[in-house]
């Protein structure tokens, strides 16, 4: 097969760890599908410098485009720029991490490039098919992309980030405008905080409907997260009720996490929630209902009222950490 193009996402000029996982997946695909060169593409502000830095992750070539038209992510101009690169080369495969930009962008590129797409893959199988969860992770499907051109999004938690290898050359890619009015970026409001990124964190503390309010998240979940240096997550019920911001939702239709330690407090363990955390190394559940389904998959379950258990747990961890 031809070359592979990997979309590398930047956040304030630095490469996302999720994109390094996509590079790992691309390296596996390269071997399995017998592809040609591995090429990376970075778009937007500071992408030239970032391309030079990223070249060392085993790429043959890095391309960048700093056009001011790409200052903020917008699907149509990003897709037209990427698909022009794809059409202008020997490419047969496009790979991106399944971040919100990767999910928004990749199908649009696939359509412009006449490619079939496998979303959110978790493995490259020995026979070259791709493994991906369906039905909230109740089923794993091995899929084959039958079209000549192939697009893939990669679940970051399923592939270790790429390590440094040989270095490739760095070249500029042209900006290609969409052929129609694509709209405009108005504003971005981060949910804030300086805790670790939910998708990368080694420890995640999540709260559910049982927390009852945003104030209780602050009072019971945050102190535990902070003593552990953890990210904070939430169930859909907690997000829908306004206890936690939308991008904290863990699950089938939210974020997928796989930390070393996942603590679920006051979360029942619906299949849609499990879909986003069941690959965590160690799962702890705190729930006052001994029959809650979360206990079936938790390594350690504590049947308790979280309003008593969480402050105790926070204090106990502080104590052993000598704080």
């Amino acid at each position: 097969m031809g070359d592979i193009l990997v979309f590398l996402q930047l956040h304030e000029g630095s490469l996302l760890k999720a994109s390094l996982s996509a590079v790992s997946a691309a390296q596996e695909l390269k071997q399995r599908w017998n592809c040609g060169r591995l090429v990376g593409l970075l778009l937007g502000p500071r992408s030239k410098e970032a391309a030079a830095n990223a070249a060392r992750y085993g790429f043959d070539e890095l391309r960048w485009c700093e056009s001011s038209e790409l200052a903020h992510y917008l699907a149509a101009p990003y897709a037209s720029t990427v698909s022009a690169v794809l059409k202008g080369g020997e490419f047969d495969v496009f790979v991106a991490a399944a971040t919100s930009i990767g999910k928004d962008l990749t199908p649009r590129i696939a359509a412009l490039w006449d490619a079939g797409q496998a979303s959110d893959i978790i493995a490259v199988n020995p026979d070259g098919s791709l493994k991906r969860p369906m039905y909230a992770g109740d089923i794993l499907a091995d899929v084959e992309i039958t079209s000549a051109k192939k697009a893939v999004t990669v679940r970051p938690t399923a592939f270790a980030p790429a390590v440094e290898g040989k270095s490739g050359s760095v070249t500029e890619a042209p900006y290609t405008a969409a052929a129609f009015a694509a709209g405009s970026f108005i504003e971005y409001k981060g949910s804030g905080g300086d805790r670790p990124e939910l998708g990368d964190a080694a420890i995640v503390v999540s709260g559910g409907r049982a927390l009852q309010s945003a104030e209780n998240f602050e009072k019971y979940i945050f102190p535990l997260a902070d003593v552990l240096g953890a990210a904070v997550g939430a169930s859909r019920a907690a997000v829908d009720s306004g206890y936690a911001p939308n991008d904290w939702q863990v699950g089938q239709t939210g974020k997928v996490v796989a930390p070393q330690l996942y603590i679920a407090a006051g979360i029942s363990g619906a299949i849609q929630h499990l879909a986003g955390m069941k690959d965590s190394k160690v799962i702890v559940a705190i729930n006052k209902d001994a029959e809650a389904p979360i206990f079936e998959i938790a390594d350690y379950g504590l049947v308790a009222d979280l309003f008593e258990a969480l402050p105790k747990l926070t204090a106990e961890i502080k104590r052993i950490k000598g704080q």
Partner: peptide, 18 residues
């Protein structure tokens, strides 16, 4: 453009310790 070749159940996680 995409064909499902095979479907399986994922390995169940063994939890349950209290």
């Amino acid at each position: 453009r995409v064909r499902i070749k095979r479907m399986t159940y994922p390995q169940q996680r063994q939890g349950g310790k209290k």
